[in-house]
Amino acid sequence: MNIFRLAGDMTHLLSIIVLLLKIYATKSCSGISLKTQELYALVFLARYLDLFTDFISVYNTIMKVVFIASSLAIVWCMRLHPLVKRSYDKELDTFRHYFLIGGTFVLALVLNEKFTLQEILWAFSIYLEAVAILPQLVLLQRSGNVDNLTGQYVFFLGAYRAFYILNWIYRYLTEPRFTRWIACVSGIVQTGIYADFFYYYFISWKNNSKLKLPA
């Protein structure tokens, strides 16, 4: 474990806390893409299959349980909670995310570390996570104004993988045989997808104005 990875995991956890806070405090999920939340639940379920077979550390196990439980709780909330589900922007959240699932799964069949079910699902979860934010970014562009908590949620979600890139550079420099090309390349693509959001987020922060993404 290094400081970059810890910062990444804490930022990731913070993004989930901010999202839960928004939904719980405002009893509303307007501006949140259910499709992105479903993709994240799928990412964690596909990646953490080794939860019961490979014990890495107490920290690792606890974080995996927290990520799976929170992502499923958010999907449950947006689909079934009587009050919250009414505020879901169903007509704006129209990204065809099944293509993302199919495309990344095919890619995982072709590009993986080992042609085993666990490795294919792990690679699938890495590729899917890289594009999972797309429905959310599309929804933000369609819904025009972005409320603060939603903007912070997306910002922390993008920042966490940027910390992971620093972690991979650090591990590459300090560990003799460290190569994680799948996670590295996918993580760079993932962070790149946030680039324009980061730009508009920085502009809105600098001008102390409302965050607006160009349609």
Partner: peptide, 10 residues
Amino acid sequence: SEPSEKHDEL
């Protein structure tokens, strides 16, 4: 398997 081959990252 080798510890390094295990996915030790979240």
